[in-house]
Design a protein around this nucleic acid. Structure first.
Lengths: 273, 273
DNA sequence: CCAATCGATCCCATATATTGGGATCTTGTT
DNA sequence: AACAAGATCCCAATATATGGGATCGATTGG
């Protein structure tokens, strides 16, 4: 029955509506004890403090719950303080930190972006904020005959690209202005400050950034922010094409897709949203 | 079933060795499956990539190992990629981050330490006393090309690190001796007891602890204690670098900075000093 | 000050979830 | 094309986890 538990994540089709809660029917035979132990971890993460709360949360008796919790405490996955009850333990700090180091954004994002690329056929970029610039880390060419002139390792101004704008979506207006001013130094701005800020506000509200030929004529893109476990934006990706493939309706449709993919990558980075 | 009745550790794990995970005499009955699952997590953290390595590492058959690993993958504690094998999963990132947030000191200290990090560019650690050990709760890498080998969630001996010494600055000499003796059990002390106590006295008087290559050659640090509303030392942080960036004059200068930052954090915790 | 209460910890016979040997399948290699 | 390496699946035997209840320690209230 198991469909394809192969590649890390199910994900399947875009717009996975399904709830995130554990599906009761999900097959996981032969690991009840382990699964219950992990459930305790998540119950504690979710705020459970004492045995009663844990027992209720996973539907086991006090004895069982206690035994499992005790094992987790002994292994330092949980801590237990007589007054305050259970809390997440140092081992989780350690493993979480290791996981963070071992997992570059590029590798995590790759499969997601490849799926997206196969689906939409446009050029996709992945990038991070480096100083005052947007740095391109990865690029998936896409199937269109047109070529987007950009290279991995290249830097682009933040204020003018969709990807750049997605990277600074969470910043406050003062910092937005700073980034806009960086453009003044080198060549003209397309939109004036007021217009640009208005757009940024709307992008921030929607959680998606657009680029409607503001940077180069004929070139449009939709970009989404990628968040880590802390919720901070650590990277962004953009879907780019020429205006002939990117009319307004399609941009709207893409926005949903981009949001979904961005969420998927973020979750793989530990984002809980 | 002529399985090995020994629940202990068979051979040494491949790759990185010597995690202190296996509790010596402590038997945790009634949670074998859970314990084995956790062992898999740590084996992967220690570098195990494929089923064979995992099986060897915890002494179970392929079937069992696979079933547990599959459960962990399904719960997103691990990821599995056909080519690369197993790796730590996003759930660990999430729980690790939550664990960090759950410790109030970490949250309060963060902004202060980030400011300090931006200013000095060295590696900064935050830690607390857990039993007889200094437990690292947070780490800010710093901008130097050198890398300090330490991990969040890791434990270090108190007597040998600047951070550890800062944590016990308020203790009396009897307890200082106790901590010094803990070092005897495992390997040699750099300074003899008398010298060490002399230094501790001077550190206590100044309210700052140093580490002048006592723990590792080339590595120096300056550490300050963090106090809560009661005035008790509840945490400490250290600024670490190699000797080339840390000559005597700079250590003196840093002492003032560290004292100031430590005071700032302490005040945020309700300290009135 | 003692009784009542709440929660954690421990014990043990029973039922059940887990185990591991091997068959099978998938994927990459010679 | 056949091989090899590793992952995945299946099933009977039994070691393993389960939970009801007793115990213990601490906190609250009368």
């Amino acid at each position: 029955m198991a469909s394809k538990p192969s590649t890390g994540e199910p994900g399947a089709a875009p717009g996975s509506a399904a709830s995130g809660s554990a599906a009761p029917g999900s097959a996981a035979p032969g690991s009840q004890t382990l699964l219950r132990g992990l459930a305790i971890l998540e119950a504690v993460a979710g705020g459970a403090r004492d045995l009663a709360a844990l027992s209720a949360s996973l539907g086991t008796t006090r004895s069982t719950t206690h035994r499992l919790a005790a094992a987790l405490v002994e292994q330092r996955y949980l801590t237990f303080a007589p007054r305050d009850g259970y809390a997440l333990g140092p081992k989780l700090l350690e493993l979480g930190f290791r996981a963070q180091q071992a997992v570059p954004v590029t590798r995590v994002a790759r499969p997601h972006l490849e799926r997206l690329s196969a689906e939409c056929g446009d050029t996709i970029h992945l990038g991070v904020l480096e100083g005052d610039w947007a740095l391109y880390l990865d690029k998936l060419p896409g199937r269109r005959r047109i070529e987007i002139s950009s290279r991995v390792g290249e830097r682009q101004p933040v204020w003018s690209t969709g990807l750049g704008k997605a990277l600074i979506l969470d910043f406050d207006e003062a910092r937005w202005r700073d980034f806009y001013r960086l453009g003044d130094a080198r060549g003209g701005h397309s939109p004036d400050l007021g217009t640009w800020l208005d757009r940024m506000r709307s992008y921030a509200a929607r959680g998606i950034a657009y680029d409607r030929e503001e940077n180069e004529p004929e070139v449009r893109c939709v970009a989404g922010p990628i968040r880590d476990a802390s919720g901070a934006i650590v990277a962004a990706f953009s879907v780019t094409s020429t205006v002939q493939y990117m009319d307004e309706p399609r941009m709207e449709a893409l926005a949903e897709t981009v949001r979904a993919v961005a969420g998927g990558i973020s979750r793989d980075l530990g984002w809980a949203g």
